[in-house]
Amino acid sequence: MDEGNGCCFSILASKFTVTFVTISLTLILIRVLYVIYRSGKPLFRSKAPRALRTLIVLGSGGHTAEMLNLLSVLQKERFSPRFYVAAATDNMSLQKARTLETSLADETGVKVEETAQFMQIYRSREVGQSYLTSVWTTLIATAHALWIMFKIRPQVILCNGPGTCFPLCAIAFFFKVVGIRWSSIFYVESIARVRRLSLSGLLLYKLQIADQFFVQWPQLQGQYPRAHYVGCLM
């Protein structure tokens, strides 16, 4: 009898576990689908927001020039404070961003430290690194990216294609799902991409992580109808 009871109990317990797991997974799936559904939609606010915490992901030479071109036409008081992130191996990009912020500070009289911060992020894999060691470096890079994103908790993310932007956007999406922070992710595919998207662009488009996806050549918009064609930024 005892054995029978134990057996019944374990069957009950396993049934309960299965049900619990199924329900949890369903709820997570519903939440993810809701976030994807909600992501592409404009934010209707009863009152226009005053200022939004903005993360700007910089890449090497060409990428950074395009991003700074975009920043030059955005109203800075709306996108403030600004957090600039670049790969730890890239010293030039943050330097250029600092120059832009310094000239802005000279115009407005507000100190750079109050409106902008500059951060470096580890890359998961350097060019030519072996796959074995990159498992370890990827883990480190992911932990570091999570830490940085938790500190910034951006409301707006602007990126245009360096490899570092995918993990950051994926973390932002995770924050949306678990409710840490809702953010709007804007991705501008680099001007260098005429016929094919970059890997970062393709992932953000296909996984619907980017709220708005911009391309600079009409050929790409033909292939990716959800993208907005905006002409050349350079």
Binding site: P49, L70, R78, L158, S184, F214, H228, M234
Partner: peptide, 14 residues
């Protein structure tokens, strides 16, 4: 080129 079309779309979205 001109970045203002992108800026306009971003502003409207937000």
């Amino acid at each position: 080129g001109d970045a203002s079309p992108v800026a306009k779309l971003i502003n409207t979205f937000l």
